[in-house]
Design a protein around this nucleic acid. Sequence first.
DNA 1: ACCTAAGCGAGACGGTACGTCAGGTCTTTCG
DNA 2: CGAAAGACCTGACGTACCGTCTCGCTTAGGT
Lengths: 217, 217, 217, 217
Amino acid sequence: MSRKSSFNQEIIIKEDKSGPVDTKTPGRKRCPVAHQNILQATSKLLNEIGFSNLTIEGVAAHAGVGKTTIYRHWPNKASLVMDAFLAETAPQFPYPDTGSVIRDIREQMKLVIKVLNSPNGKTVATLIGASQTDKELAEAFRTRFLAVRRTESKAILKKGIERNEIPSNIDADVLLDTLYAPLYFRLLIKHAPLTEIFVDQLVNLITTGLNRTNLST
Amino acid sequence: MSRKSSFNQEIIIKEDKSGPVDTKTPGRKRCPVAHQNILQATSKLLNEIGFSNLTIEGVAAHAGVGKTTIYRHWPNKASLVMDAFLAETAPQFPYPDTGSVIRDIREQMKLVIKVLNSPNGKTVATLIGASQTDKELAEAFRTRFLAVRRTESKAILKKGIERNEIPSNIDADVLLDTLYAPLYFRLLIKHAPLTEIFVDQLVNLITTGLNRTNLST
Amino acid sequence: MSRKSSFNQEIIIKEDKSGPVDTKTPGRKRCPVAHQNILQATSKLLNEIGFSNLTIEGVAAHAGVGKTTIYRHWPNKASLVMDAFLAETAPQFPYPDTGSVIRDIREQMKLVIKVLNSPNGKTVATLIGASQTDKELAEAFRTRFLAVRRTESKAILKKGIERNEIPSNIDADVLLDTLYAPLYFRLLIKHAPLTEIFVDQLVNLITTGLNRTNLST
Amino acid sequence: MSRKSSFNQEIIIKEDKSGPVDTKTPGRKRCPVAHQNILQATSKLLNEIGFSNLTIEGVAAHAGVGKTTIYRHWPNKASLVMDAFLAETAPQFPYPDTGSVIRDIREQMKLVIKVLNSPNGKTVATLIGASQTDKELAEAFRTRFLAVRRTESKAILKKGIERNEIPSNIDADVLLDTLYAPLYFRLLIKHAPLTEIFVDQLVNLITTGLNRTNLST
DNA sequence: ACCTAAGCGAGACGGTACGTCAGGTCTTTCG
DNA sequence: CGAAAGACCTGACGTACCGTCTCGCTTAGGT
């Protein structure tokens, strides 16, 4: 793993694993204070001025750090922002346990839109936006943000199948895309608001299906 | 309407509305050749180097045109790109008429993924990406791309309701988001491929609903 | 002559010589005010902080000008400084006319050391210093500073030969090097001061010669 | 004398004065190999890429040494280069003994131009150049290079006075400047070549004097 | 047939941020 | 404790584009 090649680990660890290897790492250690300062300054600026107005020079100034130090830790702006974002947003979407898996999902989706409607939502949107241009950022978003959430979601779906609330022959990714993509789509396009009612309509539609939807919305 | 304020009309027409008004427009007329050259150069560069590497200076050079001429016609890069994109992509998503509205939709969605899997799909993605940063571009995307398609789609849904294939109490925007958002989500995130099978699974799920999906996928 | 290749002409002339050729130079003209402001700011900074502490960014800031404008006019720091230096120092070493050529030279040399002992002298020294590294600067120094002075000096020597004050078989460059090099050497090395007495000693030595120097110093 | 304040001594010796004292110098001894490697790497790089392209980092890399080690031995680039230069160039300008002091000087001057025309001459030039900016380097050049040579030269002049070849009332520094400055001037300005003929012309002029030069050049 | 207002290609202008380089200092680990 | 490796902050570099502003044309109504 070359020094700057990846930002898929928040801290680049000089791998030392395995046995009595020499594991020598001469030279001064990276200052964790600088690292933290940079992440915090980035988070702050992200929320204040947004991704596209955020500059490396600005972060350096706010963090009291040389530009080079930033470039030593992250290969580009996007990866820096990704780390800052995840450090702040990681553990925000827990599934409740209401007894009904469908209801658990519905409630968790309402949690999701709460975050997406907050400043963090704007950051998610700009990160997805920047991903269209930046392959590494896109990869980081998939593996460090989306995949983590999908793993949790799939556990819930498994529970739903065990309880016979969800058919066992369903493709989990298809179902999750159908449930969550509309939320992100409205986040990104802003053609309609992200409301709890929308979540209800969505879940009703998907549970009932068009063929049987002759009831309430 | 100030000269540069909007790019929601492909050609900014000096309004000469009707009647015996003086309608004076002294001076040389805008050269339509330059306009076309600029759009074509933009399309070419978009496909070759992508939205974010595209610069106004580059377009000017390729079109054999002064930068000023571009700024006289469009207020910014995003609007220029939007025009170039729509000029090339506008009429690509017709609904067939198979007798069944559900089947019409399914087939049209397969058309959509064909476009999204082409170079034009990349451009759509970068435009949505850039919209996260650029409000005017976002607005243009909603009104000039999405709204146009939604209008068509709603006409189809209306036909479906009249034919009793679709429940009348459904919210059209919710349904259309549920159908199409997963396509755009996969386009943007690339966590899974955009295949015809995916379209089939998606339509099946939405028509049947989770409660009744004990059949094939 | 490419746009940036040379700084041996203070103003880069778009050559148009010869006949009724079209000689078109499209585009906005270079702003002479900016040019002058830059030169003046450079002169000022040169005298205040010296050549090696002078930065392009500093000049730009002082001149109220973008860095790019400087780079558009001069290829590098050295050439800029050369221009600024010559604009300020050009006409400073006139030969008097005392009736005796030897005395004319002696007096002019005293003028030279006056300049070399002033802040301008420091600039001369740093320019010669920087020339050791920068070929273009060296060439500019030779042709735009030294050669100009040598031309004048040779005219004086010719007059001296006509008046039989100076032997006709002398090599002008050798004589001029012998007279002036010691001044520049002391300027550069600072091992001894540049005084009028030194000039007198020097001229006495060279006129009388070692073989006959049994008189005063 | 603080550890790093001066580079006027080639090797900073940890004094271990006299007697059977324990002379404790705790810790690891300075590695003389490192010292030599650094000087050699510096000399090599000086001749290859010149003074101004030479970097401390480059020297460290070539010598297989940490930057800190270099800074522990020398306070800055100029002093390092000075040491490297003198280590290689020190004993190169001996005066011959031909019987005539004037002839001794003339021959030694021809030796000098030989060195000045070699790669070492380029280094001398860049050192004088860099001295214009760097006071410590200038001082080092005066005391460690020039003064050494002047001492020898003055001994020769004294011999010349004793032999009545040179007038006793001459100022040695003035004479030496008159003799040698033209050589260095041509080295630095390159407006004319450094040839043996030039040396002859120069010595002839200074010995004979303008008033009597109606003979050979 | 002439004005005159606007469009045109070209390119200079004041800026901002980029990503890199080298400087000289500080810190860690090993010998 | 010295030497190596290398992270640290600083400051300037030269470049790329930005969006605006002249330049010296050309074009085409309106009088």
